[in-house]
Amino acid sequence: MRVLALAGRRLAASIPTLFLILIGVFLLLQFAPGDTVDAMMAQMGGGDATTARQLREFYGLDLSLGAQLANYLWRLVRLDLGFSAIYGKPVATVIAERLPATLLLMTAALSLAFFFGLILGVVAARGVNKWQDTLISTLGLVFYAMPTFWFGLMAIIVFAIYLQWLPAGGFEDITVGLTGLARTLDIIRHLVLPTLTLGLFYMAIYLRIMRGSMLEVLNLDFVRTARAKGMDETRVVVRHVLRNALLPMVTLIGLQAGTMLGGSVVVESVFSLPGLGRLAYESVIQRDLNTLLGIVFVSALLVIAVNFIVDLLYARLDPRITAGR
């Protein structure tokens, strides 16, 4: 219960942060050349000044900046993200359509990164300065230094073009109209390369953190106590080191949730996935500011949600958290 209360308090504290972001981005977008109406007019293939004025009046764009901001925030409170002129649908609908692909990609990539980062980090730390450490650390560095989009392209060349094992892009094969299990498998096939592309970069980061944190913990006093009890090394690692070494990793997930969401913009573009990231890119290109602002809102919410889960997880791992410090 105290854990939940603690995480809840952190959650409440992120509300001002959310408003700070929204106000900041809203004001920032005022500097953008052209507004939604300009974009709509361009979409319609031009129009006269009267139509433009009427449209501006309709969308409340003729009001003062303060009033517009207040309007916007008031609409947000009611979860109304406005209307996308480009897609001709409410922004909320557009985003809802795109959200599943991104969520799926992020979950898969994060699991991959965390799981293998953990294992490789432990293996490297156990054999510090031996060949397995050198191999894993080098591999980690290379994955870290590779631009994700380039890795994606190279993966497409190898696995989709030459070997023809996996599809080169898309979320699912819509030409066949699969259902049920077959459809799930098809989606999984489509997500293998994007997941690897996004996940391996973060795996490289996690394995480095895990290795360092393992080495740090292995040097602590209580590990010496455990050895003085007559424990063998494997047991020392499993029972005493692992959980302590995990703490910085878990913290990192929370800190990097935002970066990872940003990374999916690029990966979704490479693999033509209909996700939130690609939508963000498209709305920048098409100057669909309403949608862009909606994406900012939703992605901030996502990051806050991830951090809430991370807080819960951390509190479960570390009993000191609930002790009030």
Binding site: S14, P16, T17, L18, L20, I21, G24, V25, L28, L29, F31, A32, P33, L255, G258, T259, M260, L261, G262, G263, V265, V266, G277, A280, Y281, V284, R287, L292, I295, V296, S299, A300, V303, I304, N307
Partner: peptide, 21 residues
């Protein structure tokens, strides 16, 4: 709070917004 705001907003999306503007 400001730092948190910058970390909560995915940096690449902010980058897109900045470049768009």
């Amino acid at each position: 709070r400001v730092t948190e705001a910058f970390q909560t907003l995915p940096n690449f999306i902010l980058l897109l917004v900045l470049v768009a503007v």
